[in-house]
Design a protein around this nucleic acid. Sequence first.
DNA 1: ACCTCCAATTCTGTATACAGTATACTGAAT
DNA 2: ATTCAGTATACTGTATACAGAATTGGAGGT
Lengths: 219, 219
Amino acid sequence: MSIQRQTLREQIEAEIMNRVSAGDFGMGDSINEVALSVELGVSRTPLREALISLSQQGVISRVSGKGFRWAPIGAQDFQEAVQIIAALESLALTLTPAEYLAKIAPQLVEQAREFTASVSSAQEIHDHDDAFHSLLTSGSPNKRLAEGIASYKLALRRYERLYVGNTDLMERAAAEHETISEALQAGDVPAAIEALKDNWNNSVPRIISALRGSVPVRG
Amino acid sequence: MSIQRQTLREQIEAEIMNRVSAGDFGMGDSINEVALSVELGVSRTPLREALISLSQQGVISRVSGKGFRWAPIGAQDFQEAVQIIAALESLALTLTPAEYLAKIAPQLVEQAREFTASVSSAQEIHDHDDAFHSLLTSGSPNKRLAEGIASYKLALRRYERLYVGNTDLMERAAAEHETISEALQAGDVPAAIEALKDNWNNSVPRIISALRGSVPVRG
DNA sequence: ACCTCCAATTCTGTATACAGTATACTGAAT
DNA sequence: ATTCAGTATACTGTATACAGAATTGGAGGT
């Protein structure tokens, strides 16, 4: 396997997203390009390119002449993204050949069970959730769809830290994963899709309440 | 209404898309940044920013170290985009309040009828189609969804010129628009959604046959 | 005290310059 | 004749420089 060259712009994107999900930036605040470029140790050119790329994905908003700013987060925004992802993942399931779904159903069941059993660190839990949904939609022949789902999920990373410590939410998600995978194992794709939508939509009220408490309000 | 300042990058994006839908570029060909910047009369910096933005939307693909290239078009690509748009517009309808749909239903019926009557220039027809779908999804409260739909439709502009002269396709689309709007007027949203999906999916085989004939193959 | 206008500064948007990598070409060796 | 190495060229990726707009601060007036 050849080593994959990574351009500076891509590294900047990744680093910014890491810091975003760590909560390093005040959402809604404007971005000072020179300050950020100095902080990251790069010049403004690749930084701006990264910011433009991220602004296409809803992580950053931009006003002509006034530069970039961290896109505000909120209940509305979260819900909108979740609605879209739910629809797109549902589409992915619809497009996936039934035999593929039947093939991966056992693995999905197993992953869901592991998920329930191991209530470990928040990061670990999140990875587990990602892996489940990733495997679930891995059989879709629509490549552009996969990219789109990934893009929208990137926007959700801004809400990642709100999950921390919310084991309640995670346990419920685990149960829903079991429902999804068992429906697939039974060959009932429509039921799986419904369960999948529920899985996403149920995350909304929890995050909303988490938002009320823990999000720093701009001053 | 204040005039809206438009940054050079945005103008470049628009101009590129105009040329793309005019078929000025050989799809699949690599992009020479300096040549294109000279041709557009701008420097490479805003051009690259525009290219990055467009590459996020599937109009341009990019290989690390080898620069940008015009994303190849083809039956597969077209179908993938259409599947996604159909799902997203369906979601938009689902999210739109029923009373709003009832309110715009008469206008939609009227637009559909006009559509059928006036089989004028290809451009005009296309605008009509755009206006119909735009009005249809205008009631969705999900702003991000609207952006997403617009983004995916941008990618379809690469196929625009294939519609030229295909009045057959357009007449059929008109009939489908009537079906959709009449279902809404009858208050049957699920039926409208199904008709909407059909409307999109029916465009695929037509475009595929058009692709076979009229797309220049790389040499 | 508050408002207005002007200046100074800060920051974005754009252009140009530089560096490193990929590609094309030339020539020699087998 | 073909293939491989070496070199030259072209182009991308990144840094720096410049121009103009937006914001901030203060001086002067009401």
